[in-house]
Amino acid sequence: MSAPDARPTAGATDGVAISLCRTDVTELAALRNRAAELEAIAARRGLRLPPNGHVVTTADLVALAVRPQRWLLLSAPAAPGAAAATWQALCADTAAAVDLSSGITALHLAGPSARDALARGCRLDLAAESFPPGRAAATMMAQVSTILAALPSGILILTPASTARHLREWLVATARPFGLAPPADD
């Protein structure tokens, strides 16, 4: 994927469409009192790091923040560790850039019933007025650590790689009564 909301969301007119996003993930964590510097470094690269609880999309990145002074950057798959290495070189002494491309799996949920389906396992208020596009949150879903980000195209779900299959099976089972569109990807 380039950015999840740029992908066509096949089947979104049915109840729920679940797809897997192939993406690199880099965590940027600012050292003490260095967040402003890190934001400046990112800004020079054309990325406005979002405030906590938000997600932003640029031409080649999705950036979200669910922990203070930390950001997750999603980018198109490249050589292993390359994205993190690039960022670490840019912000040495300011932040830690840790490659989590293998550690985090990204799923994308689209369709009119996506939020209804998620309410079967997610304790957050996912109503469109409470969680509009641009918002992100870390929580638990189906007993698994999960990060949710609302994009114009649907909901992006990040989960630890080891529980991704469990979460995906749960999502498929939960979404089925709403009408499950065939997977658009993978």
Binding site: R120, G121, A142, Q143, P160, S162, R165, H166, E169, A173
Partner: peptide, 15 residues
């Protein structure tokens, strides 16, 4: 609720 059978508790799978 739904946390029964295969959804009773998460399974972590090795790569």
């Amino acid at each position: 609720g739904g946390e029964v059978r295969e959804h009773y508790r998460p399974k972590r799978r090795l790569p």
